[in-house]
Computed example of a mutant assay.
Amino acid sequence: MTALWVILVVSFFSFMHFAVSVQKHHRDLYKKMTITNKEFRVLQSVAWVTLLYTLVPAIQHWGMGIGIMAWLMLITVSALAVTVLVNFAPESFAKLWRLLGVVRFIAPPAERPLRTK
């Protein structure tokens, strides 16, 4: 059961980094700031490393065959959760990014997102 939560939480963290590395979502978080190549590379690297890290507990807990399938299912759930949060609750996403933002050496904590209507 612990492996399940580790995979969900860490993959959620990974997909948050993927989302912030997209120009539109980065602009929503940081208003007029555009993402630099360095920020993009670091955000993508953190996302890929942490996402691949979650494969290890899945394989250790369930074995190779079931572990990979369970891992794919769990990262799909995390990706869906981040997608819903980014698109339907950008303020909550910004608060969560400020709270969990480990890569603060790259960019300042997010400001309040602009409402686009």
Score class of each variant (00 low, 15 high):
residue 22 V to H: 09
residue 66 I to F: 13
residue 111 E to V: 08
residue 107 A to R: 15
residue 14 S to P: 01
residue 100 L to V: 12
residue 63 G to M: 04
residue 89 A to G: 06
residue 68 I to N: 06
residue 22 V to R: 10
residue 75 I to V: 14
residue 105 F to S: 14
residue 29 L to W: 05
residue 115 R to F: 07
residue 64 M to W: 12
residue 51 L to I: 07
residue 59 I to Q: 11
residue 7 I to S: 04
residue 14 S to D: 01
residue 71 W to I: 01
residue 71 W to G: 00
residue 3 A to G: 10
residue 52 L to G: 15
residue 106 I to S: 11
residue 45 S to T: 06
residue 103 V to R: 04
residue 106 I to E: 12
residue 91 E to S: 05
residue 48 W to K: 12
residue 73 M to D: 03
residue 48 W to I: 15
residue 51 L to W: 01
residue 84 V to H: 11
residue 104 R to T: 13
residue 112 R to K: 14
residue 1 M to T: 10
residue 97 W to M: 12
residue 61 H to G: 01
residue 47 A to V: 02
residue 43 L to G: 09
residue 41 R to A: 13
residue 61 H to A: 15
residue 71 W to E: 00
residue 94 A to P: 09
residue 51 L to P: 00
residue 19 A to F: 05
residue 107 A to P: 00
residue 2 T to Y: 03
residue 17 H to Y: 15
residue 4 L to R: 09
residue 97 W to Y: 15
residue 22 V to K: 09
residue 37 N to C: 02
residue 7 I to Q: 00
residue 23 Q to F: 04
residue 37 N to R: 11
residue 20 V to C: 06
residue 15 F to G: 00
residue 69 M to S: 11
residue 91 E to D: 10
residue 37 N to M: 05
residue 88 F to H: 13
residue 57 P to M: 09
residue 28 D to R: 15
residue 109 P to N: 11
residue 117 K to L: 11
residue 64 M to T: 05
